[in-house]
Design a protein around this nucleic acid. Structure first.
Length: 575
DNA sequence: GCCGTTTTCGGCCCGACTGTTTTCAGTCG
């Protein structure tokens, strides 16, 4: 079940879409869009909020606050939305998801041809009914046909690591092109979103033609969508869109600022510019009356001239970072270099593919100060763990310690939280571990009440130090457990149990949104790779990206701490 | 419909590319 805030946001967004399809009151549509984003990002549950509280949410005024109250009172809708739903079939709204078809021409198709679904549009094209319709030429017909294809085969958004691989390949290739001064990826990838819709690459050069030619000639290009002097877009065989923008080297900072921020963040920064009688574009910050350039070379200059400190890319979502920047309250975000070690890793003793020695060697080469090995406990029966195997691994670990004087090795385990909240092994055996991660690996379908109690009991176990992947989601594949996380956050903070930020790109669990909620309770976090191979250890970069999106500082993350402080935290029963 | 360094009305981000048009509207990010 989605949070109430997200349900309301979805309905406000639908209302905005329907307003924009009707064609009048475009500014009203924009306000509802802005309100939808504000509501989705508002940290408190709004289902019980009164009108006064609701009006305190940015972009929510009297009219929208009333509609939200009405929404909760009338079982999930409001009258104005129902009126527009009655006017515009749901299929017409679905039509604007077709690439190249927007609200204006969707409405034309509906009014002129009574086309009210993607399927009817397909049929209308095949029957030649679009011919002669004003604004719809032969090319438009082809584009709509192709757009419908894409809509039907639209791959889901890519996981961040898959998109990163494509982006780094493109950047590497373009960086060697003659005349290329700088090249990097921007967009949602630079903001480290957990999934990526398309990849944005930015290059600086005096002339763009060589870069554009090299780009469309890359082996990964399956289709060229648009090919201009400033911007070229391609699609790969897997359907991923990659955009290349080329700007003059002197405009690098303004362009990077423009192509990094979420749309909402960019609108906010441009609005600030307008208030200062300035104009901000990808080419620079200009004095509006005279159109003379003020700054453009670095992002820092652009933000500074707007009266803002430089804002780290993962924060650029219009989720309060502008306000925090204006009041000098931006968080000092955790950095990858702050992490001293990894507290959740596996070996081939259970389901990992690397040996203990290989995992330890890889961590030593990465310069970690400490590493915890946390193989699965016996109740995950398929892994065939036993007391003897675990104790033998501990001996082997202690022996390896001598070979790696700079790396402190911790012997741990990943326990299974059973349906009652109990874990593998009696307390006496658990006391022999340096730390215990505990995770849910079965009985995913318990009621919300049972699942919540299960997590709280695990937190209350004096030997459980970290709750592993707390929601259990697999991005795009498995829904999170139904659990009251607010109660879990409270229990974790109260008992000195850290919540994991599992850095595996298919999990990223807790998510950035959950981190923002959890940190309000004073929760401590552990950013762990959950590596099942040495190549997974560097996935911590995605965990740090997610942590930054969740506004985390280094001191909130236990594996940035020196070992002595970490050991005190791990010794729960003593405190 | 919201908002305020243009403050209770009048404005609301900016530019690139495409297609259909012949000077611009629509879409996208």
């Amino acid at each position: 079940m989605a949070r109430p805030n997200e349900e309301v946001a979805a309905h406000l967004q639908e209302y905005a879409d329907l307003i924009s399809i009707t064609g009048d009151e475009q500014f009203k549509a924009r306000v509802y869009e802005k309100a939808a984003r504000s509501v989705a990002g508002y940290p408190e549950d709004i289902s019980k909020a009164d009108v006064k509280t609701l009006r305190g949410i940015p972009n929510v005024g009297a009219s929208i606050a009333d509609k939200i109250v009405e929404y909760f009172h009338d079982g999930g809708t409001f009258a104005a939305l129902e009126e527009l739903r009655a006017k515009i079939p749901a299929g017409v709204r679905r039509m604007i998801e077709i690439p190249t078809l927007g609200p204006k021409r969707a409405m034309t198709l509906y009014e002129q041809l009574h086309v009210s679904s993607v399927e009817e549009l397909s049929a209308a094209i095949d029957e030649g009914r679009l011919q002669g319709l004003k604004g719809f030429g032969a090319r438009t017909e082809d584009n709509l046909r192709h757009g419908i294809e894409l809509l039907h085969h639209a791959g889901d958004r890519l996981l961040v690591n898959a998109a990163m691989e494509v982006a780094e390949n493109v950047v590497d290739a373009l960086s060697t092109v003659d005349g290329c001064v700088r090249c990097t990826y921007a967009g949602s990838l630079r903001r480290m979103r957990e999934t990526i819709g398309d990849v944005d690459v930015l290059a600086a050069a005096e002339r763009s033609d060589a870069l554009m030619a090299a780009f469309v000639g890359l082996p990964l290009v399956a289709e060229v969508i648009a090919h201009g002097a400033a911007k070229t877009s391609i699609r790969t065989a897997t359907g991923l869109q990659v955009d290349l923008r080329v700007v003059p080297p002197s405009a690098w900072g303004a362009a990077l600022q423009y192509f990094t921020g979420a749309k909402a963040h960019n609108i906010r920064t441009r609005e600030i510019a307008v208030r200062h009688k300035l104009k901000l574009s990808e080419y620079g910050l200009f004095d509006a009356p005279t159109n003379t350039l003020i700054v453009s070379e670095t992002e820092e200059e652009v933000y500074e001239r707007l009266g803002l400190p430089w804002i780290p890319p993962p924060l650029r979502e219009d989720r309060g970072e502008i306000e925090a920047a204006l009041s000098g309250e931006l968080p000092d975000l955790i950095q990858t270099k702050d992490l001293r070690g990894d507290l959740h890793t596996h070996t081939n003793l259970t389901d990992g593919v690397a040996s203990l020695a290989e995992m330890v060697g890889a961590a030593a080469r990465l310069g970690y100060a400490y590493l915890a090995i946390t193989d699965h406990a016996p109740n995950l029966f398929m892994q065939r763990m036993s007391d003897e195997k675990m104790l033998a691994q501990r001996e082997e670990l202690r022996a390896l310690a001598a070979e790696h004087p700079k790396l402190q090795l911790l012997h741990g385990t990943e326990l299974n939280i059973d349906p009652d909240g109990e874990v593998d092994w009696p307390a006496g055996f658990l006391a022999g571990f340096d730390l215990c991660v505990a995770s849910v690996h079965s009985h995913f379908n318990q009621s919300r009440k049972e699942m919540t109690r299960r997590f709280v009991r695990a937190c209350e176990n004096p030997h459980v130090n970290i709750i592993g992947h707390p929601t259990g989601r697999l991005i795009g594949r498995r829904q999170p457990y139904d659990v009251d996380l607010e109660v879990v956050y409270e229990a974790a903070a109260r008992t000195g149990t850290a919540l994991e930020l599992n850095a595996s790109p298919e999990r990223l669990d807790l998510s950035a949104e959950h981190l923002i909620q959890a940190r309000r309770h004073g929760v401590r976090f552990a950013i762990n790779s959950d590596a099942h191979a040495t190549t997974h250890l560097p996935n911590l970069r995605y965990g740090v990206g997610t942590a930054q999106r969740g506004w985390l500082t280094a001191d909130e993350v236990i594996n940035t701490w020196p070992l002595r402080k970490l050991r005190t935290f791990l010794n729960k029963s003593a405190s």
